[in-house]
Amino acid sequence: MPLAMTKKQFLHLCQTYGSAVQRWPEDVQASAHEFMQTHPDLATRMLEAEKDVDDALAQAPRQEARPELSAQILQSFQAKTQSLTVKTAPPRRWSLVNLLWPQNHGLPAWGMALALMLVFGFVGGYTGYAYTLNRTSATEVLSTAFGSDDYSLFGEDTST
């Protein structure tokens, strides 16, 4: 059984939560109803005194959300999700293999081209170096380029 509510407590609740007792905290409602039964006139006067403020609050403008706003907010979710997907993609590993055959870009040709350029660069470099040594035959040049003194590798007869 709820403990008796005093006039002061009832007034405090009226002035705090307004004239609708059903909107007061649940744990005081039983006591409040008992107070209203034992002091009907006083309780009615106290509640009526707060009704003007409740009526005023009921007139406060209500703003509904526009469908366009809802769409904008959902677009921001999509944008956020996409940016997270990009951020969480595994970092690219910078290795020679990845450099030559980049994955997920559909461009293996430029990797191959780069590899060929490197090979020809080395060959060209060594060839130039060979010419500086005044070696005139093509076999000598190639042997210098590829680091071999065995001319037979390049089809030259070395038996003499």
Binding site: Q63, A65, L69, S70, I73, F77
Partner: peptide, 28 residues
């Protein structure tokens, strides 16, 4: 929750446009 956020912000700010901005901020 969108309408609740808009409505709360409207009561706090008294401005319909700003209320929508606040609601967007909340969802972001």
């Amino acid at each position: 929750h969108l309408s609740k956020m808009v409505s709360l912000a409207r009561h706090m700010l008294g401005d319909a446009v700003e209320a929508e901005d606040v609601a967007q901020e909340v969802f972001m």
